[in-house]
């Protein structure tokens, strides 16, 4: 039987994937339109996506806690803590490498004259914050997936 924490992780992973698909879909739609996209459009999109993520997390976790009343109140035990820490480590590495890669790309862009645009049609020249959202999302997915991997290894 799957524990409350594992179910909670599945919920978070699924929400992350759904939100990422909505985000990616909108970015691709911007690019496919072939028109220049302003930073304001992107900021608005990021804001809406973050709000949707928070709302979905809260609502689905409340629903899960109501369904799993026994498991939801239990404190984290040593096995769960171990898995969480191992997964956090993986997420941390993904985030660190991603941010370093992002900064390096930014430096290369400015050194070789590839201007980072406020209005753009090319994702490679997208603003720093747009890439950071993707990197943050990747690190979160890596974290959830690693923790789930450890839980699934036991079954």
């Amino acid at each position: 039987m799957i524990s409350f924490r594992e179910k909670s992780l599945w919920v978070s992973l699924l929400i992350s994937l759904v939100i990422a698909s909505v985000y990616g879909d909108n970015i691709l739609a911007f690019l496919a339109a072939g028109e220049a996209v302003s930073g304001q459009d992107i900021s608005g999109l990021i804001f809406r996506v973050v709000i949707a993520f928070i709302v979905l997390e809260v609502v689905l976790h409340i629903a899960l806690a109501m369904k799993e009343q026994e498991g939801s109140g239990l404190p984290e035990d040593e096995r769960e803590r171990n898995y969480r820490l191992l997964a956090n480590n993986v997420g941390y590495w993904v985030l660190s490498i991603g941010v370093i890669a992002c900064i390096s790309q930014q430096m290369i862009n400015s050194s070789f004259g590839f201007e980072v645009q406020n209005e753009y049609t090319n994702l490679a020249l997208a603003p720093f914050e747009l890439k950071l959202v993707v990197i943050f999302w990747l690190s979160e997915v890596a974290r959830f997936a690693t923790e789930l991997y450890y839980y699934r290894q036991e079954s």
């Binding site: 039987m1 524990s3 594992e6 498991g71 239990l74 035990d77 040593e78 096995r79 769960e80 290894q153 036991e154």
Partner: peptide, 19 residues
């Protein structure tokens, strides 16, 4: 022992080494 049932199950099956 203050752990979850899933942890006892994992220890029993030898999938997790307890502290």
């Amino acid at each position: 022992i203050g752990v979850t049932r899933q942890t006892v199950m994992a220890i029993e099956k030898g999938k997790y080494s307890p502290s």
